[in-house]
Structures are given as structure tokens and as C-alpha cells.
Amino acid sequence: MKVTLKIKRFNPEADQKPHWESYPVEVEPTERLLDALHQVKWFQDGTLALRRSCAHGICGSDTMRINGGNRLACKVLMQDIVKDGGTVTVEPMLGLKVIKDLIVDLEPFFAHYRSVMPYVVNDEALPEDGRERLQSPEARERFDQGTKCILCAACTTACPSFWSNSTYVGPAAIVQAHRFIFDDRDRATDERLAVLNEQFGVWRCRTVFNCTEACPRDIPVTQLIGEVKRALATGRVE
């Protein structure tokens, strides 16, 4: 099928402002948008800058606004977003500074990630037999959703609270915190909850569900944030 990619370009080395450029491409309906972008980059205009790596939705590099909403370019097939002869718009994520074209500065995103202590803390003695700590399948299942997160930033940059104020810790960091708060091997629940109880913590969430809709890993992000709020309000992790 023949389609047009309308891409928002911005190279701060050369441009004053972002501008749109259109590229005609011919693709198979079952190809990924990433394949179409590669066609542009490899055979039409090598100056197009984007991040990508694994190309099948695991590494989380190629989050961008596709037809206005956050998706991974490697996880959408052309046939699902455009008809023959149609146009696909591609823009960088919203709320983070654009470095070049579709590439944004992720440092603030990772700073929020680091702020929630994203690691298991447990200084208790290890099992004497030198083996694993025990955990029931139910306890393991309790935090399963959060472990799927690939830190692609699709949720955080879909969040109106984050757009308007990027000091908000954001959905991704809360999902990460949830993963540890609800892991019964962890012993730093209260410290982590204290971080999220601050002014720029979970209370900035307005239950918009953009995060849940944007998540390429189908994590029920808003639900996990809700569970953290509940834990804060009731003192029960359940």
C-alpha cells in the first residue's frame, strides 16, 4: 500500500521551530510503522533521527506519538493505523525536551524512576541452606503486572499531569514503586511510600487513564497507581 508519513522534524542545530515533513512510502500492510520509518531513513532522508533497537516491543526505545497517541513504532502494523493512500502522523513524545526529530531527552524520566528506590531492599539474613528466599505463587502474582514494565515512557508522556508539570513523578515510576511495594520480600515499603506521598507523588494522578491506554505492555497502570494511593490512605498493602 502507498501511504504518506507526516513526521514532525526538529533539529535544534539548524531549525528555529519544529516543522512537518511528508514522505511517501510503499509498504506491506503487515509491516510495522518502524519498517516504514526505516524506509524513509535508509532510502529517502538519512537525517531523520529516531531511537529503535529490538523492533518487537520489548526494549522500549521507539515510543512516539503515532496519529496523536503514544505507541511503540515497532508494535503497530501499518494496516492497523492507516488505509491505502492515507497519512500517518508521527511526532515525538510530549512533555520531554526534543533533542532531535523523534528523540527526546529521557533524563528527567529516569531521574523519577531512580527516585522511587526501584530495587528490592532486604537486609535480613539469607536462607541458611544457601538457597532462594521462599515466596508463594500468590505473593509472586500480586506484583506481576508491574514487572512487565519496559520503561518506554509511553505512560508518563501520555499523562496530562506530567505534561503540565514534569516534576510529577509520573505513572512509570509509580508502577515501578508498586512492583516493590507489593513484593513481600521487600522491606523498604514505608520509605518508598513516603516518596510517593510527597506533593509531586501519587496525589498528582487524576485518573485520566491515558497511561493505561498508552502502555504497550498492557499494564493496568491506573489500577496500580490506585492501589498505591489506597496503601497510603489506609496503611494496608493489599
Binding site: Y119, N122, R133, Q135, P137, A139, D183
Partner: peptide, 16 residues
């Protein structure tokens, strides 16, 4: 890895 926090799937008796 388990001690570092890796969430392995578990058997009913809590082992990996």
C-alpha cells in the same frame, strides 16, 4: 539473582 530481587515464578512450596 533471586536474592537481588528477581521475580521468578514459584512452585506451590515457594521455590523457583
Amino acid at each position: 539473582l533471586e536474592h537481588m530481587g528477581l521475580p521468578f515464578d514459584r512452585t506451590p512450596d515457594g521455590r523457583i
